[in-house]
Structures are given as C-alpha cells and as structure tokens.
Nucleic acid binder design. Structure first.
Lengths: 116, 116
DNA sequence: GTAAGGGTTCACGCCGGCGTGAAGGTCAAG
DNA sequence: CTTGACCTTCACGCCGGCGTGAACCCTTAC
C-alpha cells in the first residue's frame, strides 16, 4: 500500500510516517517511481511505535529496542534485556522528576494567586 | 552595582539578567562606558521575577503583570486585575493538562514494562 | 606596556516530534 | 494535452529561558 493508505489505517499522518523512516523505525520498499510501498505488517509496527512514543520513549530509543516489541492478547509489551530495563528505569525516573517539577510549579502558582 | 554583583546577590546568572532586560523585565541605568548599573531595588525585583518564572509564567506574561507584584510578610503575591486572573487561570489549566499527560505517559510506560 | 578580570553586543544551540509550505515528478481520467 | 490527486525530497518553524562561545572595549594593578 502507499503512504496515504497506511496513514488512514493507522491514524498517523503521512509526514509522521516519513519521519519514522528518517529515524530508522520503518524501511518501506520503493516502487519503480520512488513511491514508498508498505506491507500490512507495517500497520502493526506503526501501532507499536505509537505505543512506545505515547509512553515517552524517543525515536532513537525506539530504534534501539524495536526488536524487543511484542504485541499479544494482553497488549503491547517489551521483552526485557538489561540495557532496555535500565533505559526504561531512567525514563521512569525522568518522568517522575518532571511530574514533581510540575506539582511544584502548580503549587507556587496557587500561592501567587491566593496568598496576600 | 554592576551585573556580576547583582548576579551574586540574587543567585541568578549574568546571562539571565541580560535576558530579563531583553524581555523588558529590567531596565538598568548605564554608566558612561556602557556598563549596566543596578539599584538595590532590583534585587527584590529579580526575586519577584524568579518567583513568577518558577510558577510557570513566561517572560511576556511577567512583563504584562509586573506592576501587580507585591512582596509582603506573607510572601510574594499578585494583586488581581481581570486580565491577570484570566491569564493565571488558563495557565493553571495548562499545567493541569500537562500533569494529566505525564500521568498517562507514566502509566503507559508501566504497562509496557510489566505487561506480558 | 600589558596582563588580568569585568563589561558589551551579537547570535547560534538546545530538545524533538512532527507541521507546513516549496518545488517538482507520477499517474489515472476526461 | 491537461487537470488533479498523490507522490517525492529538502528544510525551516515551533517553544523558550537561558548556556555558550566569539570578538571586542574599560579599568585597575604591576
């Protein structure tokens, strides 16, 4: 299928799909005229990519660990290798830190608003 | 006083102080040779700016409402005018939204990590 | 004279997943 | 042939508070 069809099937913009290719997350074949040609398995792969992005992973991390992705009846998950475990742990810590920062900002804003 | 002294007194870098001037938050006098000359009241003002920034306000918003800032015994606060009230409300909503997004990311990451 | 230590004005870099034209090739349909 | 819908490859814009040189001026001490 061509890019616009994959875009419709996945709900992801064509621009994003090209971006994923630039990042090495997709490697579609090319037609004689240079058009990107995707297979049905790319639909699943894009869904996996989106799941990982929505979990906070960057494209470089996704590229490193895309082999670890499995999609089963119980949802999408990752088969753990040591590096991946460490990467996800540090990501979790970063997310927690950002959450704490946001909470601080929010409370400081409340103080600015109501204090006095 | 010169910029490095104000930087030390406030704990804010000289670069940041120049940045605040670029944004219209500070308007130091100039010596004959072009050096920025600050007064003691600028120490308070910088503290107010830092408080507002740490609460999530951007420099443009700070510039618009810097007149509303008061620093008293009960901490730094803002005298409310309608526009300011609306601005702070929308900011609070944006912070809440970002907090919700982060929570979602965090839980999705947990699912990726442990599911399967 | 000069080295040292501050001050000044640019102006790019960051962080990153895409949006958004711009300029131009491909292809089926009328 | 021509419209028009889709495709391609660049490549800048975003969001923004500063970090970080670069290149150059002022002043003081030796």
């Amino acid at each position: 299928m061509l890019i616009s069809e994959l875009a419709e099937l996945t709900g992801v913009s064509a621009r994003a799909l090209r971006h994923y290719e630039d990042c090495g997350l997709l490697t579609p074949a090319r037609s004689g005229s240079g058009y990107r040609v995707y297979t049905e398995s790319d639909v699943t792969r894009v869904a996996q990519i989106r799941t990982m992005i929505s979990a906070g992973l960057g494209t470089s991390a996704i590229r490193r660990y895309l082999d670890c992705v499995r999609t089963g009846d119980h949802g999408t998950f990752l088969e753990m290798c040591p590096d991946l475990r460490a990467e996800l742990d540090s990501l979790a810590r970063r997310l927690d830190a950002r959450q704490a920062e946001l909470r601080e900002k929010r409370s400081r804003l409340d103080r600015l608003t109501s204090a006095g």
